[in-house]
Design a binder for these strands. Structure first.
Lengths: 316, 316
DNA sequence: CTGAAAGCGCTAACAC
DNA sequence: GTGTTAGCGCTTTCAG
């Protein structure tokens, strides 16, 4: 017990949890003892005593429970699990239905839930968060007062992609966006509008949902509606890869007739034919940041943006 | 409290945990009360009291920690998380180094660890499991006494793939296997040997590691060593997709010159060019079965095999 | 077979 | 500021 190396259990608890008063003297003694013993507080006991919890919940917003099958959710979960494992706590995965944001509040009320990492949060979901959840929720996407957000800088990333397409001579650049209900994709769509606008080019946006299936549909839709389109920028490599496949089947030459670019730089972007030009999304780093903020209760910046770097390949 | 609806806390505990004696009378009363109240035992309290735990650990064997980045591990983790969430417990992700199987024993000893789902276990790792772990460990791959195994029927799956290649007129079928240290892939390799053997064809096997990068190398290796190869069967779609990309770059026509087939039927198998012929691997169902066995402490069959179905596409 | 009682490791009042 | 004390919800001896 860390207690043997100094003071009483109460004092030790106070300094380790950061709450309550403690003199610098005992503060440092406890810290040293804890370090020497490699002390990790028992999450179960902490939970039982009324504070803390034994797992961080990864809550994914979406219209249907399918969002849990998205590889994106799996990557977030995996990264969060890595951070959690070091503190001997677990993670769990939950769906927050678009039509029932209160599911989030219920989740936050569960005993074992230490904190929540929100994926694809809507403002409605953020609004129903009980004050008891303050300080133990972080969002990947948009945040709110008391809910720090971590995300990729998709505005800059999108601007770079579209800038590259335009610089390469493309004049009819269409974009397959994210779902309309997802506010964190606005930055990317705005960037697209701005860049094509500044170049005096038309705005051609169709909604997407990050899936490959939707990418296939969207590509057909774009070509039907605007036959002279010479570039497609999809928010999400899955969607871009779907578009690539559909264009290939339709006999459209990529990048000859139409350039295609994605967003995320997933592993398959380097394996498709043609290989996919895209921009990076350090999901694991972002998720780890969010999980750390939740677990350590540290007051993070309201919004931490991770850079997105252009990756030029053959498709654009 | 379920207790109010009948007997004393001790008796309730006895019937709910299944341990200890209890009369049929109180047994049914407690069961009914629990059902009515929608009672879920508090994992934290259980842990603190010395039994149970607050998370199921997913432990992945491998030479390096990279195995945790494999999408396969993420799928298992996600599926396990789904099962765990219903019981209000979490999951965590761990690497069991090939050179240090004792890491598994340490993991099993951790307080909060309710049970372990072993992914890609070696016999050495299974051998060091402490008896205290008995009944709360399940394997995805090969099992052992007291460790039920859940896996895809990769023997039958591989036989079907190779059978299809041979039936299609391929006479020089090479296989990219799994890592040599992974015993659960033996069934697939044996099936390959058997099918080509029975057809009087040569055995051409090169080792793989399930990665796309290795698939690219392996394809080059196979063609360098046996230039007349007319089909490549890779254990794992990632590897097959890597091979596909490498062959495409080398100007080899697929499936004209060389047929390519994979194993797993991941989402990208339908998006590559050409689309990939493969065979299914219901990873989520398998992982859910393993997680359920661990959490419910139910005596599962020593080996539960899930069927693998051939998916014919353009590459073979 | 069943109930009463003692903790598991920690936090949160409450005195000092 | 710090120590003492009473539980958190469960399992588990130990008597009945």
């Amino acid at each position: 017990m860390a207690r043997l190396a100094g003071v009483s259990t109460a004092t030790a608890s106070r300094v380790l949890s950061g709450r309550g008063p403690a003199s610098p003297a005992s503060r440092s003694r406890v810290a040293r003892a804890a370090r020497e013993l490699g002390y990790v507080p028992d999450a179960a006991a902490r939970t039982l005593a009324g504070s803390g919890g034994t797992r961080v919940a990864v809550a994914v917003g979406g219209r249907t429970a399918d969002v849990l099958d998205d590889p994106y959710a799996a990557r977030v979960l995996t990264a969060a699990a890595g951070v959690a494992a070091a503190r001997e706590v677990g993670v769990s995965l939950h769906w927050v239905p678009l039509h029932d944001p209160a599911a989030l509040a219920r989740l936050a009320g569960q005993r074992g839930v230490d904190g929540i990492v929100l994926v694809n949060p809507t403002r409605a979901a953020l609004a129903v968060l009980p004050r008891s959840a303050r300080g133990r929720v972080a969002a990947i996407g948009v945040g709110a007062r008391g809910v720090p957000a971590f995300d990729v800088d998709n505005g800059t990333g999108a601007a770079r992609v579209v800038g590259h397409l335009v610089a390469g001579g493309r004049r009819r650049v269409a974009m397959v966006t994210g779902p309309a209900w997802l506010p964190c994709t606005d930055r990317a769509v705005d960037a697209y509008r701005r860049v094509v606008g500044e170049a005096g080019l038309p705005v051609r946006a169709v909604p997407g949902d990050f899936t490959a299936a939707r990418g296939e549909e969207a590509a057909a839709e774009v070509l039907a509606r605007w036959p002279d389109t010479d570039a497609v920028f999809a928010l999400g490599d899955l969607t871009a890869l779907g578009a690539l496949a559909a264009l290939g089947r339709a006999g459209v030459d990529v990048p000859g007739d139409v350039a295609v670019a994605g967003f995320d730089d997933i592993a398959f972007a380097a394996l498709s034919r043609p290989t996919l030009t895209t921009t990076t999304n350090p999901v694991e780093a972002i998720a780890a940041g969010a999980a750390t903020a939740v677990l350590d209760r540290c007051a993070a910046e309201p919004l931490t943006l991770h850079p997105s770097e252009l990756v030029l390949r053959d498709s654009a």
